[in-house]
C-alpha cells in the first residue's frame, strides 16, 4: 500500500461532500457536507506533510480546522436567524435574491 490511497480516499470523500452540498436541502446537513470536504482536504495536507517530511502541512491542516470552527459558528448562527424569521432550514426557501 502507498500514500496514494490516502489521497484517493480524500478525493472520494471530498466529492461525496460536494455532491451532498448539491443534493441536500437541509442547511445543517449542507453544512456537514462542507465540513466533510474540509476534512478530506485536511487528510490530503497531512498525507503530503508526511510524504515530503515537513510539518508545515500539519500546520495548514491546523489552520483549516480553526477557520472551519469559526465558519461553523457563524454559519450556524446564520441558519438560526434564518430559521427564526422563515421557519425553515431549507436552503431552497432562501431564494429571494433572484431575477
Amino acid at each position: 500500500m502507498t500514500l496514494t490511497w490516502y489521497l484517493v480516499l480524500a478525493a472520494i470523500l471530498f466529492t461525496i461532500g460536494a455532491v451532498g452540498v448539491l443534493v441536500r436541502r437541509n442547511a445543517i446537513v449542507v453544512f456537514m457536507c462542507v465540513e466533510l470536504m474540509l476534512n478530506s482536504v485536511n487528510l490530503t495536507l497531512v498525507t503530503f506533510a508526511r510524504a515530503h517530511g515537513t510539518v508545515d502541512g500539519q500546520i495548514m491542516a491546523f489552520f483549516v480546522m480553526v477557520v472551519a470552527a469559526a465558519e461553523v459558528v457563524v454559519g450556524l448562527a446564520i441558519i438560526m436567524s434564518i430559521y427564526r424569521t422563515r421557519r425553515s432550514a431549507s436552503v431552497d426557501d432562501a431564494n429571494l435574491l433572484k431575477y
Binding site: 496514494t4 484517493v8 506533510a49 508526511r50 517530511g53
Partner: peptide
Amino acid sequence: LVGAGIAEATRDLPVTGL
C-alpha cells in the same frame, strides 16, 4: 478526474517521514 489525476501524479510518492 481527481482520483485518476492524483493516482497518476503521485505514483512514486515517497514516504519521507517526519
